[in-house]
């Protein structure tokens, strides 16, 4: 495993484009749904800043760009990448999958890993607090506990809230970001917990007047996003190598810098 990674890194460092593609093509050979094509799934719809304008084919947006970079590492030209859409439920239900891997901010958790496989993380997102318009609070645990909290029910924000923040009033949970937005508009919640990029996007674009109060330290409480594979898919090793190579080369950091706003200036919550 370590060998593959360092080999890949070496290959990346040394070889020119075509030689590289050939080397990696070997690692994905015969492992994709369709020979010579990489089928990638994302959410429906896929949100900014992860995918711009809900068109992953453009390669614009953090996850779209990461997907194409990984595909290139694995030896697939951009035109050999096909996109499909899937919900979380479709991704985890048993049976044949219609994608090689699926990326839509899936947090890696040990429980999930029993059912599906994840790649090594391609991003570590800190959790961040989004305050509803007109709500003021402080970036301390005590102040946070007094707020009326909401979150998207399918995210790892939920255990973070129940186990770490432990608000005094009962939680309200929603199906998606738009409903959290509606609840803020209706004055039903003071704050919601999201991964930092989503929180920054919502505050900047979707929920007028809302603010990002602060972020939690990325390590430990942070969310690690990984590519999701069907349990036992051998393509995982190839993708892991590709992600490691991108990390090594600094390309992943460059993509992050291009698409995700700088989080500097957002205070840390102890």
């Amino acid at each position: 495993m370590t060998k593959t990674v360092s080999l890949a890194a070496l290959a990346l460092a040394l070889s020119a484009g075509s030689a590289l593609a050939e080397a990696h093509a070997a690692c994905a050979e015969g492992l994709t749904l369709e020979d010579g094509t990489l089928t990638i799934a994302t959410g429906n719809p896929a949100y900014y800043p992860w995918v711009m304008d809900d068109t992953p084919e453009s390669g614009e947006g953090f996850e779209a760009a990461v997907a194409y970079a990984i595909a290139a590492e694995m030896g697939f030209e951009a035109e050999n990448v096909t996109w499909v859409r899937s919900s979380f439920d479709e991704a985890i239900q048993p049976g044949a999958k219609n994608f090689d891997f699926n990326l839509q901010q899936y947090s890696i958790t040990p429980e999930r890993e029993e059912i599906v496989d994840f790649s090594v993380p391609y991003y570590t997102a800190p959790m961040a607090v989004l305050l509803a318009p007109g709500v003021e609070s402080e970036a301390t645990m005590e102040a946070l506990q007094g707020l009326k909290w909401g979150a998207v029910g399918s995210t790892t924000a939920v255990p973070m809230l129940t186990d770490v923040i432990q608000p005094e009033q009962d939680l309200l949970l929603y199906g998606d970001n738009a409903d959290v937005n509606a609840a803020m508009g209706a004055g039903q919640i003071d704050a919601a917990l999201f991964d930092l990029p989503t929180a920054m996007f919502l505050s900047a674009v979707m929920i007028e007047g809302s603010t990002v109060l602060g972020q939690f330290a990325a390590e430990g409480e942070g969310d690690q996003f990984g590519l999701l594979f069907e349990d036992g898919n051998e393509l995982k090793a190839c993708a892991d190598a590709a992600i490691a190579a991108l990390e090594e080369s600094g390309e992943l950091a460059a993509i992050e810098a291009e698409w995700l706003q700088s989080a500097t200036g957002i205070p840390l919550i102890e």
């Binding site: 985890i92 958790t109 999930r112 059912i115 029910g153 399918s154 939920v158």
Partner: peptide, 14 residues
């Protein structure tokens, strides 16, 4: 129903 959904998401299990 929501609680079941939360568990489903956390455990990737129906």
């Amino acid at each position: 129903f929501r609680q079941a959904g939360v568990y489903k998401s956390l455990m990737a299990n129906f």
